[in-house]
Design a protein around this nucleic acid. Structure first.
Lengths: 372, 372
DNA sequence: CCCCAATCTGAGAACGTTCTCACATTGGAG
DNA sequence: CTCCAATGTGAGAACGTTCTCAGATTGGGG
């Protein structure tokens, strides 16, 4: 009723609030809130009148006001390097599914693996009063900004990487064990010269890239390191000595250097009979180069990769891979986060942080054969 | 100073607010806010004292309270079918990049192409007071819930699909033109029997899948329809008549039926000499089947696909494709959304909604050859 | 008949911000 | 000297919610 003359500028008509509901139901705001919140006492009649009013007005509570009052926002943050990356977008889906079940929403922020962006992201999320944060931290050592989050009483779960010396929960794949098993598989097939080709983050200290692999690889969990460790462990378990020439670690943002690393490996005097490519970037580069050069897989050389990508079953031969369950890892991280949120961020349970390790699976396909 | 005895239960120590800043600077809350907001008059001395206090306390304004007061949240929503899909996650990245520049964050919600989820998502986002929504709507006809969003004064941009009879902005690829050009290319190479293999949404009316393709394909922009239209247009421009047997549209969530559609096509009495696969699902299925069957591409049959996926350059032959610039589409949608937000959601500019069409590119590779 | 517990309700505070308004205090022009 | 504009400041309202508290009304047990 009462359509004002200038019905054009209606957009100013804002959503009904709880006062409107109360008025329509003929009760006070407190009573309406009590009915909606389902606490305290309310007469049956009032309950019905309020619900009726809610329906008639199409009332939806304002989550901002609710957050203001309660401190709980029903929003969590996901901080990752790049949401368009297949691993992160799959994990994101897992996170979203759990969040939906919990009645929460997810804010995503990309860091491009830059510490400054990450620090900014945590600040912003905190000022949005998120209930918790899932993060794939750029650095496993410098995590002052992340500690600040937990200190503010906001739960944090670290995904895919583990922070050293912090009580922060983490969800990681068993990269070391899975890699060791894969390498062991190759050794079992008679391979004695197995190359390890992996990527590292651009920010990583160059020490890792050249000398003292074993030492520099020690420390907190980070996929690239753990996989090197797994490689070394399998070798040593089989009584083989690691050969510096058969290990290459290049920054993941330099495709040319990746190609070059594979190339160098193939031109060795005593070349490897099997390639273990420790991540999707490297697997792709190696496969490209091999097929460009007309080198037969697995006839001339065996190829075993990490990460299951769509194309690994589309190319011939189909590539055998160790696959990280990215969706499930996202789910697990979210489950753990909501568990923390539920018990009100009690930071006392385990001083070293709960660590969830999810198994990576080995998918045998056609790119690996016995050593000639 | 003054570390209380029970310094264990510190987490209750909440972040400093603007009152703390004001107190420390020895001014009123209003003055502190004025300095921080940079409006009105403030003496140089007070400005410095306030900034000093901000630094000392590490004060960060509470965005929830700010939203409460101003109605602007610096958050936008992205509603898509599935964030783990390559198209959406790339678009998401584009959206995030623009949002970052604008000082906003992005909440993602998945619908799995279900109308109920989508309606729910818009409600939730509205109650979070988002400044705008980018959406890939499930249905191009039933958009009452989306109209409700604009009616609430919240800008909306539709991505990849266009809503019929609504003033809602959209960003879409020129699917029809790009498809027509691709088909034309095939015809130019002598192909007379070109098959069209595409997917449709599960919810889509079966009418589309069987008869009267041309008629049912009319209407608002939606990639699957536009591509069929482009196909028909190119055929007709070349004086060719469409053959019902050479057109297959199957729900994208039924891989078996996809395979079956390709199979049927190949077993036709007068089989096609070229396959146009109108989306990534179909391209993958067709390539798989062809290579399984040992059918030579492009020797026995030419293959031309839609969507550029990583593997299309990894397999042999490399697949020629029409590629949709997903990242740029996300960017464009976000740009348009913030433009609307900037001019305060004036819904008066163009009653039919601004339509941004971004060109799809044709990438010629090795999977297309002249007709034998 | 009185009292107290149980039931029901509403007034009002609080969350942290922004911003309007009113009230000083200047100093220069007339 | 007077007046007014320019400059500087603070009190307090408002956003929409939740929830504590106190007050009112019942009814049953003593």
């Amino acid at each position: 009723m009462a359509t004002e003359p200038g019905s054009r500028e209606r957009p100013k008509r804002s959503r009904p609030n709880i006062n409107d509901v109360a008025k329509r139901a003929g009760v006070s705001r407190a009573t309406a809130s009590r009915v909606l919140g389902g606490y305290g006492y309310s007469s049956q009649e009032v309950i019905e009148r309020v619900n009726q009013a809610v329906r008639e007005l199409g009332y939806e509570p304002d989550r901002i006001a609710r957050t203001m009052r309660s401190g709980k926002s029903d929003v969590i943050g996901f901080v990752c390097a790049d949401i368009s990356d297949a691993f992160f977008s799959a994990a994101m889906r897992g996170i979203c599914d759990v969040a939906l079940r919990e009645g929460s929403q997810v804010i995503v922020m990309n860091t491009d693996d830059r510490g400054s962006q990450e620090r900014q992201a945590t600040k912003v999320l905190l000022s949005h009063k998120v209930d918790g944060i899932i993060i794939t931290p750029v650095s496993v050592r410098e995590h002052g900004h992340i500690d600040a989050v937990t200190r503010a009483g906001v739960p944090v779960v670290s995904l895919d990487r583990q922070l050293s010396d912090s009580g922060i929960d983490s969800v990681v794949a068993d990269n070391e064990a899975a890699t060791a098993a894969a390498i062991d598989h190759l050794i079992g097939l008679g391979h004695r010269r197995v190359a390890f080709l992996g990527s590292v983050q651009p920010e990583e200290p160059p020490a890792l890239r050249i000398g003292k692999v074993r030492a520099s690889v020690a420390g907190p969990s980070r996929p690239s390191h753990d996989r090197v460790r797994g490689y070394l462990r399998a070798l040593s378990a089989a009584g083989l000595h690691p050969d510096r020439d058969l290990i290459a670690l290049v920054p993941h943002d330099e495709p040319k250097r990746r190609m070059h690393a594979v190339q160098t490996m193939l031109e060795l005097e005593d070349p490897p009979t099997a390639l273990f490519t420790a991540d999707s970037y490297m697997t792709k580069s190696a496969f490209s180069l091999l097929s460009e050069r007309g080198i037969a897989i697995p006839g001339d050389i065996s190829l075993l990769g990490f990460d299951d990508l769509e194309w690994t079953t589309l190319v011939r031969p189909r590539i055998s891979v160790v696959v990280q369950p990215s969706y499930e890892m996202g789910r697990a991280a979210a489950e753990q986060l909501f568990a923390q949120i539920g018990r009100n961020a009690a930071p006392d349970t385990d001083p070293r942080g709960r660590r969830t390790v999810v198994p990576a699976r080995f998918l045998e396909r056609d790119s690996v054969a016995p050593s000639p």
